[in-house]
């Protein structure tokens, strides 16, 4: 599929933008309507993770123990990771959970995973200021590479959308996706520099690690907020490129699969 083939898709999505917003609002509403603490959960989950990891990492020494902003790096990493892991989790049911809509009505199916990713994006954008406040209060916030922040956010969005498209479609044809996901996400978590610094990866593996899009994304966020070294910008660029390739792959696969969604549900 060339980029030209994407244009009608964009047009289609634009034509159904009202549906997209309704679905985004619905996703947010359904998630928070049912629980007493509502939006706080978006915030409390990473807080628990951070507390647990900060204790264990002190013992494990995965960050440089003398690093004064080790906690801030960890918090940034976990919050960034949470956006991804919530997207992939929701993606599994983006199409499956809307069987009613898919079987009974006609609209561009891509709206479904797109709406779950956008809902999580909204969540993430609400959490980001809280992260910034935390970094400011702890005197770790440094205005240096903030200019790259929009690029990093959009790139992470592309990665999340690409993965969501693949997962939401795949889960229909291959129901084990749901179970495999847990293990894959756990491995990915530890392979990404979230509870450690990218610099701690042995040099000979660093090139390979940069193929992991989360390496570039997490390193990018840290550079933007904490003024840490962007490492080799070219390598970060490479892992950002991978994110966009995942998106293209996701769109191509999803559009190919969606023809049969109605029969699979």
């Amino acid at each position: 599929m060339t980029l030209c083939a994407m244009v009608p898709l964009f047009k289609e999505i634009y034509a159904f933008r009202d549906l997209l917003w309704i679905l985004v609002a619905r996703n947010l509403k359904i998630r928070y309507k049912r629980s007493v603490l509502g939006f706080l959960w978006t915030f409390l989950n990473p807080v628990f993770m951070i507390i647990i990891y900060s204790i264990f990492l002190k013992i494990l020494k995965s960050f440089d123990p003398s690093d004064p902003i080790f906690l801030q790096k960890l918090v940034t990493g976990i919050i960034v990771w949470q956006f991804l892991s919530m997207c992939t989790g929701d993606a599994l049911h983006a199409v499956l959970g809307n069987a009613n809509l898919v079987k009974k009505t006609s609209f561009p199916r891509i709206i479904l995973p797109l709406s779950t990713v956008l809902a999580n994006m909204v969540n993430f954008l609400f959490v980001l200021p809280i992260l910034v406040i935390f970094l400011v209060v702890t005197h770790a916030f440094t205005i240096s590479d903030v200019s790259i922040l929009p690029l990093i956010i959009i790139t992470q969005f592309a990665l999340c959308l690409g993965l969501s498209l693949i997962l939401s479609g795949m889960n229909l044809f291959f129901r084990d996706t749901e179970h495999l996901m847990g293990a894959v996400m756990l491995a990915w978590f530890f392979l990404s520099p979230i509870i450690y610094d990218f610099a701690r990866i042995p040099e000979r593996f660093q090139r390979l690690a940069m193929l992991n899009p989360m390496c570039g994304i997490v390193t990018g966020y840290r550079a933007a907020f904490l003024g840490t070294d962007l490492m080799a910008p070219r390598l970060v660029g490479l892992s950002l490129l991978v994110s966009w390739l995942v998106l293209v792959l996701g769109v191509v696969l999803f559009q190919r699969w969606q023809v049969n969604f109605g029969d699979k549900l």
Binding site: A15, F16, D18, L19, W21, I22, L23, R26, K29, I30, K33, N98, N100, L101, K103, K104, T105, S106, F107
Partner: peptide, 28 residues
């Protein structure tokens, strides 16, 4: 289209929300 019962309504949403959802699916 009204295909069987259901018509794409989401059980957790209110009637009002579903009406707007269906309208959006129809491109309104």
């Amino acid at each position: 289209s009204l295909l069987e019962l259901g018509a794409g309504f989401h059980p957790d949403l209110t009637g009002r929300e579903n009406v707007f959802l269906y309208g959006a699916i129809m491109g309104l």
